[in-house]
Design a binder for these strands. Structure first.
Length: 231
DNA sequence: GCGACAG
DNA sequence: ATCTTGTCGC
């Protein structure tokens, strides 16, 4: 891991400068081995004091069964600012992933990767910080011009900034709004699309995201019992 | 100056 | 993200 990439920036201007520099560390090509496990990550804010709960859910890549769940509590170190989202959630999420008993072969993030103003969204940030393959899968668009994909499951169209392909809109289920897929780190866009579609056999969002989301929402922010791994 | 704006 | 009930549709 690279703790230097997880320190809270002093202000938005510095944060943007760091993103522009770190964007050069992103690998947008496939550099992953056999994928046996895929992790989903998410963060929930249970009160307005900045207290948060980050979670990592490890799934069997073939059966999509949840193999392990981990949650960590923390205090937000940076406000939510569109474009600087990763400085709020990357650190706690990275801690949750590292708390898993084994490193996942791939991580799907609840947010964008290269489909970002400076090409360094949460998925890129997390991937580079942990040096693990990551995919960005957001529910809404941040930047880029989109074209509605066809009505059937699997249909997809590029998310563009002029001639540059930032990612893609992907219809994971017929008749539902598409999700926004982009490269995070060490995964190509075609591979990212294939995985997100595979991970979303029944619902709009991938099972990895659903598992992590359900986990953070049922985890109390304050005291409570520390969740343990689920066999 | 007027919108747009991940979670 | 979070605050919140009922309701339209498959």
């Amino acid at each position: 891991m690279r703790p230097d990439l997880l320190a809270p920036p002093p202000n938005p201007q510095v944060a943007e400068a760091w993103q522009r520099a770190w964007a050069g560390l992103v690998v947008a090509e496939d550099d992953l081995g056999p994928v046996a496990t895929v992790a989903g990550v998410d963060v929930a804010y249970h009160d307005q004091s900045g207290e948060l709960v980050a979670a990592a859910a490890l799934l069997d890549a073939r059966t999509l069964t949840v193999l392990e769940e981990v949650t960590v509590r923390d205090q937000a170190q940076f406000p939510y600012i569109p474009g600087l989202f990763s400085f709020r959630e990357c650190s706690p999420v990275a801690r949750a992933v590292e708390a898993l008993s084994r490193r996942p072969d791939l991580i799907v993030c609840d947010g964008h990767g290269r489909a970002h103003p400076r090409r360094f969204g949460l998925a890129c940030h997390l991937g580079v910080a942990l040096d693990l393959p990551t995919i960005g899968c957001g529910k809404t668009r941040l930047t880029g011009a989109e074209t509605p994909p066809g009505p059937d499951r699997g249909a997809h169209t590029p998310l563009l900034d002029g001639a540059e392909v930032l990612g893609a809109t992907l219809r994971t289920q017929s008749g539902v709004r598409p999700v926004y897929v982009s490269v995070g780190h060490r995964v190509s866009l075609p591979t990212a699309l294939t995985w997100v579609l595979h991970l979303a056999p029944r619902y709009r969002l991938p099972e990895t995201t659903r598992a992590a989301d359900g986990l953070v929402r049922r985890t109390p922010a304050s005291p409570g019992t520390q969740p343990e791994a689920q066999p």
